[in-house]
């Protein structure tokens, strides 16, 4: 189960938790193809990042409990510290710390047909990014503004890290209960408090590895 906490208290780090599982996945992970979208439909200027724009999630919201809580884990990797490794099928994002350690964050990922894999870099970072609902969302919810400047009700959440030249981003959310689910159009979402933490650690140019699924 996943719960959220609206306090500003950071989650406690639990070193070496789930070490065996993570190590196994890291060792057996597949080689990476170049970044490519899984679906042509996912290639659009805007993103469908949820069905409830306007909902509020404060920037302090973090995942406190359960597997999707931010935590320090054993993570065997040859990638340099600062690399982001996303395991779509596990709904985890790893921030590589080096020395076989990583910070693990729970994420929401693309729904079926909108998941992808690749190797990209963080091309840009933005605080409280703007949001442009995609046309199909406007069709379903015609009362939505066609552009929403960044803010607490914005589905893009508190921070965004843009992935290369793709339309995809790692961003916050105003729906933290969707962490661990697959409902986006290919973006990766974290609770606002968690994405703020990740944002503060991540530099523009950071390597981002997206693994669609672990192959055992």
């Amino acid at each position: 189960m996943t719960t959220q906490d609206t306090t500003s208290t950071r989650s406690s780090m639990r070193p070496w938790l789930a070490a065996a599982m993570v190590a196994t996945v890291a060792l057996l992970a597949p080689s990476l193809a170049q970044a490519q979208a899984a679906s042509a439909a996912a290639q659009r200027e805007t993103m469908n990042v949820g069905d409830e724009p306007g909902r509020i999630s404060t920037e302090e919201t973090i995942i406190r409990d359960g597997p999707y809580a931010r935590q320090l884990v054993f993570f065997r990797s040859n990638d340099p510290p600062g690399t982001l490794v996303i395991h779509t099928s596990e709904r985890f994002l790893y921030y590589v710390l080096g020395n076989n350690r990583a910070l693990r964050y729970g994420i929401g990922v693309g729904r079926e047909g909108f998941q992808w894999s690749g190797l990209v870099k963080v091309s840009r970072k933005a605080e409280w990014p703007d949001w442009t609902p995609p046309p199909e969302m406007i069709t379903r919810q015609p009362y939505l503004p066609r552009f929403m400047a960044g803010g607490p009700g914005n589905p893009m959440g508190a921070r965004a890290m843009y992935l290369g030249s793709t339309v995809y981003r790692i961003h916050g959310t105003n729906q933290p209960e969707t962490i661990g689910q697959s409902i986006s159009s290919g973006c990766f979402r974290l609770a606002n408090g968690d994405v703020i933490d990740l944002f503060s650690r991540t530099n523009v140019g950071a390597k981002v590895v997206i693994r669609h699924s672990a192959q055992l």
Binding site: P145, R146, F147, M148, A149, P152
Partner: peptide
């Protein structure tokens, strides 16, 4: 053209987008 903003600093660019 319809767009929204929350903070006054965003008004001008929101207007441009609208």
């Amino acid at each position: 053209g319809m767009a929204s903003y929350r903070e006054e600093k965003d008004r001008a660019r929101t207007e441009r987008i609208a």
